[in-house]
């Protein structure tokens, strides 16, 4: 509703400024929150903790600005024609003389012409929005390209950030988990139990013929896991060959220990032969 009195007009303009300030603080909170999410994700700290420093940043900014500028000064800053005029009129509004009356009349005129967008700091707002977009982009990149940060890292706290990797490793021949490394914990667990997709993401089973024996070999050197179906026919389909309770992540250096003893000699000789060639 359009105000007619001087005080009403000042109050109206004041409300505009307060609304814009509220918007700016919300934007500042969002930017600070996203920045802390990114920082905490990199540090492996839970996302929910980012709220606290973001609130502190906004509160500190509010306290600093509150000390720096009176709302009347903000109105004056937004419109140079009101500079010193508005506060002089407002502080002397109770005086009854023709000079003050004329000043209030002039100030009313300038207040009517007041453009609310003059208080809107486009540069500041643009900066906040720009920073937010960049942070969101970085977070999305980290999530989708799996560059060491997973959603569990954002949500779940310390220790779960490599859950996806664990799943794929343990899945072994079953191949679950790795593709869903940024997925939720249930996906990770599924992979761990070896009950994921039956598709072998590591490629087809290799059949090596060594010393006359057909050997079905799956080698996942990145996880130090090797599965063997023994000689002859393929007895079990991929993804079902490991018992639930026998699953353990094994490091690369333990590769040799998992080779069946009866095939150890044959395999060694095969690789020596390859090396000789």
């Amino acid at each position: 509703m359009k105000q007619t009195t001087f005080e009403g007009k000042v109050h109206e303009a004041w409300t505009y400024v307060m609304d814009i300030a509220l918007f700016n603080y919300s934007l500042m909170f969002m930017t600070a929150f996203l920045a802390f999410v990114l920082l905490f994700a990199l540090l492996g700290i839970g996302m929910y903790l980012s709220v606290l420093p973001a609130v502190l940043v906004v509160f500190a900014a509010y306290m600093l600005n509150r000390r720096k500028q009176h709302p009347l000064q903000i109105l004056e800053k937004g419109n140079p024609a009101l500079r010193d005029r508005l506060s002089a009129a407002y502080d002397n509004k109770d005086q009854d003389n023709f000079v003050v009356k004329e000043l209030i009349r002039d100030t009313n005129y300038y207040l009517e012409d007041l453009r609310t967008d003059s208080f809107f700091n486009l540069r500041k707002t643009g900066t906040y929005v720009g920073i937010s977009i960049v942070i969101v982009f970085i977070l999305l990149s980290l999530m989708f390209f799996g560059l060491g940060i997973g959603l569990p890292g954002l949500f779940g706290g310390v220790g779960n950030s490599n859950g996806g990797s664990q799943g794929s490793g343990s899945g072994g021949s079953n191949g679950g988990g790795s593709a869903n490394g940024a997925g939720d914990t249930s996906t990770s667990q599924e992979a761990t139990l070896g009950q994921g997709s039956s598709q072998n993401i590591y490629g087809d089973v290799s059949i090596a013929k060594i010393e006359g024996k057909n050997m079905e070999l799956e080698m996942h050197p990145e996880y130090g896991e090797e599965g063997s179906a023994g000689s002859g026919t393929n007895e079990k389909p991929p993804g079902t060959g490991i018992e639930d309770n026998s699953v353990q992540a094994t490091a690369a250096e333990s590769y040799a220990e998992n080779i069946p003893v009866e095939l150890e000699g044959a395999i060694r000789r095969y690789f020596e032969k390859l090396a000789g060639e």
Binding site: H70, Q73, D84, S87, A88, A89, Y90, D91, N92, Q95, N97, F98, V99, V100, L103
Partner: peptide, 12 residues
């Protein structure tokens, strides 16, 4: 007399 009527803000 008018000089003394001139309004000045508290801040100034």
């Amino acid at each position: 007399k008018i000089v003394r009527m001139m309004p000045i803000s508290d801040d100034l």
